[in-house]
Design a protein around this nucleic acid. Structure first.
Ligand code: ZN
Ligand code: ZN
Ligand code: ZN
Ligand code: ZN
Lengths: 131, 131
DNA sequence: GAACAAATGTTATGACATTACATATCCTTG
DNA sequence: CAAGGATATGTAATGTCATAACATTTGTTC
């Protein structure tokens, strides 16, 4: 199925997987200087491919990227993200009812959805910050 | 209720209302040069206040801003946006079921939501492009 | 191995957003 | 009214995110 990754794609994927939290393209670049990467485009091109493959998600409200938590699991699903503003952790989930409701709205309004973004910003349970 | 707008806030609001589509902060700035605005910050500060007041929404997937279609109507609602990638038009809607499902997920995971983004990108009915 | 597609390298530039600091305006209250 | 505080403004500089354009290399197919 998913073809082997190229060198740059593998480097970017490894960086994101190891981070455990979203990273900006430029942060990824900084962490890969020693591996020979020098220009933003090298990272953006790898991110584009990885996103197409479903291995990486772009978080629109953060302008950042995160490794998929369930690779190859939810190819066609509508994915929602819960993003902790305190620790940076991201949880992915799907909800068929939400998907059905949004699909229904689109159908009723003759809107042809291409991509849907659902992102919840807030504080995760583990982060009950000592006020 | 919503206090009077300051000069800069009124200028930005008028520009956004008249546009009928989302505008970037820099586009707004360009359209207000003749009114004396010169720096991005003047626009961003006005946008911040207008957003707080609920008169303007930020579209995360576009890095742009749009005048609220139903001012003072949905103060506390979860708002979803359907954004046409062809004509730029944005439709706002609320769905209580979607809100309940997302609230339920958050409750179950002890996630304290601060702000939720729902944006559907696609093509609106009016835009059935001549292929 | 010629031809084509895909990936890479590099420079420059464009687009979006904030920091830092100075000044002005409004509004309260003694 | 003067003093003080809160809010709004003006301005320059800088930081952050993303793509255009072009040259080169690598891999695949016939
Ligand atoms: Zn995923
Ligand atoms: Zn957290
Ligand atoms: Zn609205
Ligand atoms: Zn349209």
């Amino acid at each position: 199925m998913s073809a082997d990754l190229t060198r740059n794609q593998a480097l970017v994927m490894k960086t994101l997987s190891g981070a455990g939290a979203p990273l900006s393209a430029y942060t990824i670049l900084d962490r890969l200087r020693d591996d020979g990467l020098r220009a933003p485009l090298q990272v953006y091109r790898a991110l584009d491919k990885l996103t197409e493959m479903g291995l990486v998600h772009r978080l629109e409200s953060l302008n950042a990227f995160v490794a998929c938590a369930h690779p190859n699991c939810h190819e066609q699903e509508l994915i929602a993200f819960a993003i902790c503003e305190n620790c940076g952790k991201v949880e992915e989930f799907s909800d068929q009812v939400v998907k059905d409701r949004l699909d229904g709205w689109a159908r009723n309004h003759r809107f042809k959805a291409a991509k849907t973004t659902i992102e919840i910003r807030g504080d995760c349970g583990r982060c009950e910050v000592k006020s």
